[in-house]
Design a protein around this nucleic acid. Structure first.
Length: 257
DNA sequence: CACCAGGTGGAAC
DNA sequence: GTTCCACATGGT
């Protein structure tokens, strides 16, 4: 028996689940953001600006078969089925690779609120700075923007991209393990940041970022199993669902104790 | 005023 | 190989 679940993009979940850091909503549920040189305001009630525009349709990953993916992930067990159902509507955004890389470098040993704060300051309300602009800001300038000890990390990423040691276009064509190793040559980029950059900036769904939350999830809900092996080509999506489910339900106060 | 946050590099064992 | 720790800074 095939169970068809009704699927609808959930704008708030998609933009506020911790994969992107530059979207804000007003009290009426109007979401505004800037991607590259494009800006958009959109609401759950009217997603047509997304559906009818090639750029935004791609950004919101409208071409991917989420209902099918949910069905496939659900077959791995009841916990995953529940998490996918709870998180249904979250799309994995096709973010700018450079911005995603920087954003997740900044995310380390940091909280989401302050990650947003720093990225907003870096962007000065407009475009996210290019590698060259980061170099121009300089390590001291980055420190003044509140990056803390991550200033050197972002600077080194900018330097390596600028010099061509890291070729973002080439990364798109490389297999995941090679791309991971390449990204890890950046000072301050380890397995977790590399996998976030590849998942959110390069749409590599087999990446399974292991942060403190996902370590808890795999230990508590999956008997310490390897998420990458368990969820395979859809591991990244599974991770996003489980991350959201963990934070908003499973470990939330008053739930499951 | 302590303690924490979508980790990582480096030293010590 | 593994474990421990400093790292800046804004929020609670």
């Amino acid at each position: 028996m095939v169970i068809i679940m009704d699927y609808e993009v959930n704008l708030a979940r998609t933009l506020d689940c911790g994969q992107a850091f530059r979207w804000t909503s007003d009290e009426n549920g109007l979401w505004s953001g800037i991607v590259g040189a494009e800006s958009l305001s959109v609401s759950q009630d009217d997603l047509s600006p997304v559906r009818d525009n090639e750029f935004w349709s791609n950004y919101f990953d409208m071409g991917f078969d989420y209902p099918g993916a949910i069905e496939e992930l659900s077959s791995t067990g009841e916990v995953m089925r529940k998490a996918a159902e709870f998180s249904s509507g979250i799309q994995i955004l096709n973010q700018d690779p450079w911005e995603a890389l920087c954003s997740f470098i900044i995310s380390q040993n940091n909280n989401i609120k302050r990650i947003r704060l720093i990225i907003t300051r870096l962007s000065k309300g407009g475009l996210f700075p290019s590698p060259e602009e980061i170099l121009d800001i300089g390590v001291e300038g980055l420190r003044e923007l509140g990056l803390g000890f991550r200033d050197r990390y972002v600077f080194d990423a900018a330097l390596k991209v600028h010099q061509g040691d890291i070729d973002l276009e080439e990364l798109k064509t490389m297999d995941v393990s090679s791309a991971t190793e390449r990204l890890k040559t950046i000072y301050g980029v380890g397995d977790k940041v590399a996998s976030c950059a590849l998942l959110y900036g390069f749409h590599r769904f087999e990446c399974f970022p292991m942060d403190v939350w996902m370590k808890r999830v795999m230990a508590d809900m999956f008997d310490g199993m390897d998420g990458k092996k368990l969820f395979g080509p859809l591991a990244g999506l599974a991770q996003q669902y489980l991350f959201f489910y963990a934070r908003e339900c499973f470990y939330k106060e008053g739930q499951h104790e």
